[in-house]
Design a protein around this nucleic acid. Sequence first.
RNA 1: UCCCCGGUAGCUCAAUGGUAGAGCAUGCGGCUGUUAACCGCAGGGUUGUAGGUUCGAGUCCUACCCGGGGAGCCA
Length: 439
Amino acid sequence: MPEICPVDRLQERADREVLLRGWVRTTRRKGKIGFLVLRDGTGDVQCVAVRSEVGDALFDLLDRVPQESSVEVEGTVRVDARAPGGVEVGLRALRVLHEAEPYPITPKEHGPEFLMEHRHLWVRSSLQHALLRVRAEVVAAAQEWLNGEGFIRYDTPILTPCACEGTSDLFETKYFDLGSAFLTQSGQLYVESGMMAFGKVYCFGPTFRSEKSKTRRHLTEFWMIEPEVAFAGFEDNLALQERYFSGIVRRVLERRRADLAALGRDLAALERVTPPFPRLPYDDAVAMVNAAAASGKEEGLTPLSWGEDLGAPHEVFLSRQFDRPVFVTRYPAKVKAFYMQPDPARPEVALCADLLAPGYGEIIGGSERIHDRALLERRLAEHGLPAEAFRWYVDLRRYGSVPHSGFGMGIERAVAWIAGATHLRETIPFARTLYKIYP
RNA sequence: UCCCCGGUAGCUCAAUGGUAGAGCAUGCGGCUGUUAACCGCAGGGUUGUAGGUUCGAGUCCUACCCGGGGAGCCA
């Protein structure tokens, strides 16, 4: 029996006998010549059989094997311009390992409800396959880039005793005799303790938001990577983020170019993701939005008054004014989290920035953190947060406190923008949304 | 929670208030280079649910259920 060969290595085996294992994507027959497209996880390849050469038994089997059956195939690798991908396999033997029942996802169009209901099967489709390979590359790059910079992965808890920034949007679960526990909505506070221990750390894991968000940019369960750096100020933070995101995009371009192309992504837009990213102060962002709203050329864009947070349409509009990701900096402190360091020159704004991807919106949010204990305690009180629950967090400011900064990047949003996916639910194998928890 | 759109065959969709249709999928037959192949034949329906208007409702009205898109909030 010939050696097993993955489909993506067939080019190297021209004119040699191979054994393939995989699933039947589709079959086609035209009289006495038949085609079977085999998928093995690494790629698709067309297998060809001519009745007069392979005999009636094998030819009829090829014609009968249902879509998505698992099979073993033996044959000769041939370079042929007529084959998709330029390589095909001349069939010599076909063994059906499991004959599939009628497959629900046919090679025609389907609606999102039907596809999400069959998500466990939909992941076999070629575009979903490409998208999830891009996700895997983003996840790997997101960690390995930081590891290469001397960051330590520092895992933060998923079950937490209280809200990080508020209590309204958390999933609650019973926790023995201690009452309730909540699924984390951010590892940020915990990762700050690691920063004080290791200097440069990051946490990476699932986070949960029980918000009733019903848009293509929201999931109730999503993955977030949150680096945190000691002795890093606001500008250091922005410099890190632009190097970081550029590095991730470059690696995906290098290793997943074919998948990005299959997804129809504009690769030039990704090639432009190089530092420095433009900085747009919040004040200027408001002015740009208001000028555009007054001109009437931007439909649905409502004017802003200083102090209001940017809405999704504002972010999309602003991001479209630049050819690469843009930092919107120094938001009003009132609309941001309690732990963000105020600008010493203008205490009404925070030393924070959101990174907006062109045409998409926010994918990273970050800030310098408050390192002064008295100020932090004042902010906790102003936000009506319970001092006791945050005692350990305040403690970090009692023992060698230093200026520090960090940010959080939503993995699915990064994947969505990099891959050009229209909906976040396709960037994770099993999306959790407001009205969907099956399968 | 609010606003907009939708629900008809396994799937994607048609159908002036007047006989329930097509393509794909499935089954059978044909075709030696197909690329979501093509050609012919066949089977396949409680039109989301419950009421109402009407001689007659897939179509109009009311309520509810489910899904999609968006807002708010955020990553």
